[in-house]
């Protein structure tokens, strides 16, 4: 036993700790971490599985949606017995049964301005993971991450086009973000025509983006992550990635405001 890690845990998580710059420090960090996952669809149910299996202390799962038969090819935690049941509740029950080390709390609601405070105001949350499926929720999550100074790991996919980024809302002496936020990238009046419902998507393509999110969380918690404020774009058909710097918009009403102006949601 070392650093609060039991002999059994040492064996169970040994492959993670064998990474030289992850080690016992990284494992301890994961086992002390609490994260919020918003959306338990294609992205979220995979991210939750990876993080729960890694030994994470607490996962807060937000989703008001229920399992539908059309979800099953890509939301592989679910099966036919889960149809009609709440996704957050099913995910929490299944992962809690597999991983006794962590605590998994289901919030069976769509995250909103009204209910996010039940978690973010009352508990220490280390990261927010955006696995949602619509533009307005993504803007709300971006705003919450900045308001609460909480690192944000975000991914989205539609058809063969995936996008991933991580923001770290630490602020400089002028109380502004060091890089652009989601609103700087896509202002609130941006027109979105692509969604999984209308354009389709392949399960493994969603899995690539979910794996990136889970990997980013583990790397961040263990001090291995450096790629903040970089938008990664994935072409699932061409098997290629590209990345660009997320420049901040000096006129952004979300991340360029002083902290006292960040409470209202405009999206």
């Amino acid at each position: 036993m070392s650093l609060g890690i039991s002999d059994q845990q040492y064996i169970q998580y040994s492959k993670q700790m064998l990474l030289a710059d992850f080690g016992e420090y990284g494992q301890q960090a994961v086992m002390n971490a609490s994260v919020v996952i918003i959306g338990l669809g294609g992205l979220g149910q995979l991210v939750a599985q990876y993080l729960s299996a890694s030994g994470m202390k607490q996962l807060y799962l937000f989703d008001g949606d229920v399992v539908d038969p059309s979800n099953l090819p890509r939301q592989i935690l679910f099966d036919h017995h889960d149809i009609g049941k709440n996704k957050a509740a099913v995910t929490a029950a299944k992962l809690q049964a597999k991983n006794a080390d962590g605590r998994i709390i289901a919030k069976q609601v769509f995250v909103s301005d009204e209910n996010h405070q039940t978690v973010l105001d009352n508990y220490k949350v280390d990261m927010i993971i955006d696995c949602s499926d619509n533009f307005n929720t993504r803007h709300l999550i971006n705003k919450l991450a900045i308001k609460y100074r909480c690192p944000l790991v975000s991914a989205a996919i539609s058809a063969d086009h995936g996008q991933y980024f991580m923001l770290i809302p630490e602020q400089d002496c002028n109380f502004v973000m060091p890089h652009g936020c989601y609103h700087c990238l896509y202002p609130a009046d941006t027109y979105i025509e692509n969604s999984c419902q209308h354009t389709g998507v392949l399960g493994p393509a969603v899995g690539v983006l979910a794996s990136m999110q889970a990997l980013a969380v583990l790397n961040y918690l263990s001090g291995r992550y450096q790629d903040y404020g970089v938008l990664h774009r994935f072409d699932a058909k061409g098997f290629s990635w590209s990345k660009v710097a997320m420049t901040k918009d000096e006129q952004c009403p979300v991340c360029q405001n002083k902290p006292s102006n960040m409470g209202e949601h405009e999206a």
Partner: peptide, 10 residues
Amino acid sequence: IEFFSAVAGG
């Protein structure tokens, strides 16, 4: 120069 659309699905 590149331009691309936002995606929001998950």
